[in-house]
Amino acid sequence: MERLTPAFNVENLSFSYREALVLSDVQIEIAQGKLLFILGRNGSGKSTFLRLLAGLLPCRVGVIQVFGRDLKDIPMAKRAKMFGFLNQQHQAVFPFTVEDVVLTGRASYAGFSPKKADFEVVRETLEKMEIGYLRNRIYSELSGGEQQLVMLARVLAQQPRILLLDEPTSQLDFHHQSYLFSLLRTFANAGLTVVSVLHDPNLAFLFGDDFLFVKEGTIFRPPNGIEPWDAGFLNEIYPCEFQSVPFNDRAVVFPKITL
């Protein structure tokens, strides 16, 4: 079988904020059509890495290729059709309706004025995410979780081939979390590449195809022969003792608690 061009190919990527080195010499390939999770501790550089992939931070040292093309050479409007980015949090200032917010995701298609087709995409996207009933509500008056779903709908309305999500479930209740992950699973099965930063390793292990770990500025996969839910391996990432419990053909982990 012919090998697909990777969605992202990252070579020798380093990044620093002022003097502080956040990422150093990252070499990573991200395959197409997979549901990939990025795990690691707070402040380890997960979000920085995601923002670099999204082109929101300048890649000064190293190369980031998207579908084989250097990210630097891709104009912004083209990038928007390749990948969509969901921010960790979003502060609404004006009381826009949900429809107005989601419609802005069509900017790279609509230019200066949204067309009928753009409204149609917005309506379909909201329906697909089962939040059609929110369409005429005021975005800033929604709950944090609903706002997060709306912002995800905004990214989907952009119709990108890659989704870059920073903590997409941070505000979601239990039901919406599992709902969102099944949705991401369906997207990946349909060929969309999903790259998501996540705090909860278990949700990642339950749904993901591929896992990246970030620690002290380096990004890596578990060494050969070691599963990502291996308690010993996880202990190197998060400085606490883990207990691994088999689940289906995988495992979930719990921190060891001494009472």
């Binding site: 082109g55 083209k78 980015f85 979003h90 609404a92 200032v93 802005t104 900017a107 905004r154 952009q158």
Partner: peptide, 17 residues
């Protein structure tokens, strides 16, 4: 119309092209 997107924030505008 673009002002709606600008009002959402820089990251949102940039990632929408």
């Amino acid at each position: 119309w673009r002002m709606n997107l600008i009002a959402l924030g820089d990251d949102e505008a940039r990632s929408s092209g």
